[in-house]
Design a protein around this nucleic acid. Sequence first.
DNA 1: CGCCGACTTGAGCAATCTCAATCATGGTGG
DNA 2: CCACCATGATTGAGATTGCTCAAGTCGGCG
Lengths: 266, 266
Amino acid sequence: MREARTVSHSSDVALAVASASGKIGRRDAGAAADAPTLRDLALFAHVDEPTLRRLAVDAKVETYSDSAVIFRQGDPVASVVIVLSGHVKLLRTAPNGDETLVGIRGKGENVGDAPALGGETYGVSAEAVGAVSVVKLPAGRFARLLRESPALCAAMMQDARDKIGALISEIESLKALNADQRLARFILGLCPPGEDQCRFRLPYDKRLIAQQLGVKQETLSRAFAKLRDYGVRTETRDVRVESVSRLLAQCDDIGRGTRTAGGEPR
Amino acid sequence: MREARTVSHSSDVALAVASASGKIGRRDAGAAADAPTLRDLALFAHVDEPTLRRLAVDAKVETYSDSAVIFRQGDPVASVVIVLSGHVKLLRTAPNGDETLVGIRGKGENVGDAPALGGETYGVSAEAVGAVSVVKLPAGRFARLLRESPALCAAMMQDARDKIGALISEIESLKALNADQRLARFILGLCPPGEDQCRFRLPYDKRLIAQQLGVKQETLSRAFAKLRDYGVRTETRDVRVESVSRLLAQCDDIGRGTRTAGGEPR
DNA sequence: CGCCGACTTGAGCAATCTCAATCATGGTGG
DNA sequence: CCACCATGATTGAGATTGCTCAAGTCGGCG
């Protein structure tokens, strides 16, 4: 029940779009001095320049502090929200008040869907996980441009396809995998590609990971413990995977009770 | 003609569509859904006539018998498939061969996503549940028209939004509800709106329902048994719900173990 | 130094799965 | 018309997984 209206900062992004300003791009522009912020987003990579320029008008960058509400399920869709830094969690609230985590969006990801012309409402609530900054593009203008720019349309369609694919994968996970396997898959998804042995930091705390995987925190903790036997070592928030390929191969084994622990053939 | 192994019938739909003005609609009393027009599909309700007409060129109606494969995960996307009658199940196959049901499409529903321009592949397999007839629209032409018709684009975008919303609801179900509650919700979704007491027939067999809900068949059977106490009576495939509103209200109760709720001993 | 939040660990219990047997039901061939 | 089989559905009993409740650890920070 925090209602701090925790937007701590809000600024025009138009400037940033017209001229890469360090504050937003947060990377030394270098040769890409005229590469606008919106253009940097993978989502808009192939969108035509004029459309992007018009999108940038009225675009705003906003920052939120931990647990701040970005929009609420049921609110009229006012803007397209894209994460610039930090993570945003998506929650679905049931009629009885229960909240269920239904997704987490990170850097570069579109938090909602493409807006329709008319007055629709958000199907989920979005809330900041730690400090977050986002770009907001007014929904009305966005919807209009959507009708005029096939490239923008294609981009949003691709985004929708990707989202659908990801959601289907999650359903598959929930239906077909047990907690240990889901965690293994989650870890594998975090490993940088290329190296077989790797080391990285969890993107957010374990409580949130537990919700994402659809298990209780205690169960997640035990799952982490189990994965130690499979070459996944964690200390607090740092993870080291001894062999990505091996973990991937053993994914099926994990979760089959203790019977084949030692690799016993039957 | 084509892989006639499972396809028992294939015909041009172009005629039917070209004369969308209405005469073809229900020309003969054929068995299941014969030669409907594209315009009759809710999906295309607001698409402009010229686009629809061009879509209809090369459109085919095909029928499949039980368990026939309509397309396979990994296959290049050849067409947009829309169900005319019967049901189609969507399966995701894991690298280890496990198949998981990730969706069921019924009459009027688009089986896949909007096709992209380039060579993408299906992310799931589609298989007939009982006898099925579908319209197939060539993917290439569809993708092209998508770029030229904002109305078609809007229609597909809305379809994507709906799908995403449904998938999120399913994830919410899987994460937050137990088997009994999921079944209750499923039943509620089948009740025709309006009446408080109702009676209907399950759309497919309980085995499939179990997969859809992510439980084993035995568990589903016990869940049905439990719902009897809440006014849901089933005999084989017919269902009678004594009070939809009451069931809806009790949805939370169902599944809270036997401890709370001065409940009923059986 | 002591508290707090995040995490871990333990013990018992509830939900679900597994294995197995039984029971309808419908179709089929004799 | 009936014995018989195939399939789906139900039911029972025991094994597992994951949840709940309850401590206990750990690291950081005022």
